[in-house]
């Protein structure tokens, strides 16, 4: 039975994504870390669907749709920011910093 190990793997991948968001300043790599976290959650959905029915796999389908939409809009925002500041480094994007 792979349910338990899959959930542990999902937790590890999610934590790696969180660490990536905390230690990186490149906006595109930050987006990749968010995708990594979404993948980790997808893995736990699929693992739990082996025990609780196909609803989990349908949820993974919806998560993938939302992730694709988020990637498209997010990368367009990064393009607009790059055109404005000539950089995607988050240390140059500090308008809200008091």
């Amino acid at each position: 039975m792979l349910l338990g190990p899959s959930l542990v793997l999902s937790a590890i991948l999610f934590a790696i994504g969180v660490i990536g968001v905390m230690i990186r300043r490149n906006a595109i790599v930050l987006f990749m870390c968010v995708e990594l976290m979404l993948n980790a959650v997808n893995l736990s959905f699929v693992a739990l669907s082996t025990a609780h029915g196909f609803g989990g796999q349908v949820m993974v389908f919806f998560v993938m749709t939302v992730a694709a939409a988020e990637a498209a809009v997010g990368l367009a925002i990064i393009l607009a920011i790059f055109r404005h500041t000539r950089s995607v480094d988050l240390k140059n994007i500090n308008l809200l910093q008091g």
């Binding site: 595109i28 699929v46 993974v60």
Partner: peptide, 29 residues
């Protein structure tokens, strides 16, 4: 791993949508 968990459709979607489309978008940007 999805194939091992008997989610073949999700595995195919993972390769097509994530490893294919989304990552190509990232590399393109």
């Amino acid at each position: 791993i999805y194939v091992l968990l008997h989610a073949q459709f999700i595995a195919a979607m993972q390769v097509l949508v994530y490893a294919g489309a989304v990552m190509v978008l990232f590399l393109f940007v």
